[in-house]
Amino acid sequence: MSGQQQSLDDLQHIKRMMERSSRFISLSGLSGIAAGTCALIGAIVAYPYVYGHKDIFVDAAAGNELARTGHFSVILYTWLFWIAAFTFAAAVISAFIFTYIRSKKQHIPLWGTTARRLMINVAIPLIVGGLFLIKLIQANDIGLIAPACLIFYGLALVNASKYSLNELRYLGYGQLILAVINLKFMVYGFYFWAIGFGVLHIVYGAVMWTRYEKE
């Protein structure tokens, strides 16, 4: 091997080791596609409840009774809450599976310093966002729910990009731009939510998959 080739290999090795030791790089594009698909299915299932074609309460009598008292636990009696919870769980689990498979292929342990660092930095904006959303629902500020989801999730992604794949930053920018446009057209929050969590995830996942994982 020539000295030039050797130097080039060494530099590439250095770059790879720097990335591997400081960033969580096993995140699979297929995880994005899976999470996006879950979000779109969730949105389709939720549509008739959001737009009043179906009764929002799982148990109408108990729901209406609680709604009169104005107690927050009324949310547990709505279809929307359960659809949202189920969609979230399905998205996280399916995203996890594809990333787990990729980490196996790369021979990188899934749980380690880089994964922990990523988790903490994603959790900060998401937990604060979650608390804020609860307050929005209590205040009955329904129009702000979709843009608030997009803003906190977008910020979480921009933050995450420093601890994982750089391209997450652009997915984050996408969510933030959608959120800002959504603030101009408040009544369409449901559609902006579906575009952000559904379409953007799928587009991002497909791009990442073709760029790094397609064989």
């Binding site: 060494d10 090795h13 770059k15 080791m17 720097m18 591997r20 030791s21 400081s22």
Partner: peptide
């Protein structure tokens, strides 16, 4: 290669 790897990791992390 191993020493390059060690140093690469230590350059981008406070400690490993």
């Amino acid at each position: 290669r191993i020493r390059l790897g060690i140093m690469s990791a230590l350059m981008v992390n406070a400690d490993v």
